[in-house]
Amino acid sequence: MPATIKDIAKALGISPSTVSRALNDNPQIKEETIKAVKATAKKLNYVPNKAAAGLRINKTYCIGVVVPSIGIYFFSRIISGMQRVASARGYQLLICQSNEKEEEEEKLLKSLSAGRVDGILLSISQETTRLNHIKEVMNHMPVVIFDRVDPALDTVQVEADDYNAAYIATQHLIKTGCKKIAHLAGPTSMFNTKNRLNGYKEALKDGDLEVSNSLIANCDFDRHVVGKALEKLLKDHPDVDGIFAVNDNLGVEAIIVLKKMGYKVPEQISVIGFGNYPISKIVEPRLTTVSHYLSETGERSARYLLEMIEKKTRKIDIEPPFVSELIFRDSTKQI
């Protein structure tokens, strides 16, 4: 059995209430008593019962995390960052996945907000088009939206600088001599992928290159459709010499498919991704990409939520998005 406050009190010959106040650094307790209580607690391997303490102050010391998928590298890295911050502050994470389903996301938010957590970290599912279920939770609980954000939600949101990162990626292809650049795009319903699409288009305009919907293939983050998408793109535009992929998974798949089709990367077609996932360094040639600060995004999101919880406020100061940088490898030509 773990040691209790009563065990500490018995060892020191003082009341349990005095032990409790000493453990919480109550100024009414003498400093020598506080030191003696904490030393005895350490000796007896006492662990505070946060659940019991939480019941007294209506707190669970638990944060709900809802992500589209737990199993992929992207979200696992973000969750790792959240875990570090939460654990250091005495909170636990209750992690759930929506499986990219709006209905499942709604069920999870309702369950979590029914007294199980003190706040929620949410990355919106690909299918989500209605926001009422999110707004409802926001009415009575702190919510931070991360990565997959929506400006219609009046809460703290942590997003990547998707527009500028996409601009940087496309601009790099232009600087290396690409004249006709295609885009393997993500879901059109999501704001972060829209921002990447817009950054790609703006870079083309600034480089006086063709901007055409026929150069954009919607792949919905699904690497299995990249083959057919590239076949159509290159049939319609055989002079394509550059490809910007919405994430590294599609970028890697593009390299594999192009090589199977007999193209040389980057001699004939350059490829650049987004995210700097580990897989980008395994494929041959290694994938040029732009950074996406996943762990840092998780840390920042958790910090913001804990500040909202502990200060009992919905309005906090937030930092500008992380500035992405180009990570040059072998799948694009040198400038």
Results as ranks from 00 to 15, higher is better:
Glu159His: 10
Ala152Val: 10
Ala53Asp: 07
Ile120Asn: 00
Ala245Gln: 00
Pro16Lys: 06
Cys96Ile: 03
Ile216Gly: 07
Pro266Leu: 00
Arg314Asn: 08
Ser270Val: 00
Asp222Phe: 11
Phe75Lys: 08
Tyr46Phe: 14
Val283Asp: 03
Ser113Pro: 01
Val283Tyr: 09
Ile72Ala: 11
His237Asn: 15
Gly90Gln: 10
Cys62Lys: 15
Lys107Met: 05
Gln171Pro: 00
Gly251Asn: 02
Arg329Gly: 04
Gln171Val: 07
Asn58Ser: 11
Glu210Lys: 14
Ile124Cys: 04
Leu209Phe: 04
Val156Asn: 03
Lys311Gly: 04
Glu319Ile: 10
Val246Trp: 01
Leu121Tyr: 02
His133Lys: 01
Val211Asn: 02
Ile256Cys: 12
Asn45Glu: 12
Val158Met: 05
Gly119Met: 01
Gly81Thr: 10
Ser301Val: 02
Lys10Gly: 09
Thr188Lys: 15
Thr297Tyr: 07
Ser123Tyr: 02
Ser17Gly: 12
Arg130Val: 11
Ile134Val: 15
Asp161Ser: 13
Ile34Ala: 08
Val290Asp: 03
Asp317Ile: 15
Pro27Lys: 09
Arg148Gln: 07
Leu326Asn: 07
Leu12Phe: 02
Asp154Glu: 15
Arg196Trp: 11
Ser291Gly: 10
Tyr73Arg: 11
Glu267Cys: 05
Thr188His: 14
Pro27Trp: 06
Asn164Ser: 11
His224Asp: 14
Lys205Phe: 13
Glu307Val: 12
Arg329Ser: 07
Asn49Ala: 09
Gly115Gln: 11
Ile335Asn: 13
Asp118Gly: 05
Asn192Leu: 15
Gly119Asn: 00
Tyr167Ala: 02
Asn24Trp: 04
Val47Cys: 11
Lys43Thr: 09
Ile174Asn: 04
Arg223Pro: 13
Lys179Gln: 15
Lys259Val: 06
Val226Met: 05
Thr155Pro: 06
Ile309Tyr: 01
Asp147Ala: 09
Leu209Gln: 03
Phe221Ala: 08
Gly298Ala: 08
Glu325Tyr: 14
Arg116Met: 13
Cys96Lys: 00
Lys50Ala: 04
Ala53Arg: 14
Thr288Lys: 05
Met141Tyr: 09
Asp248Val: 01
Val85Gly: 01
Ser212Arg: 09
Ile216Lys: 05
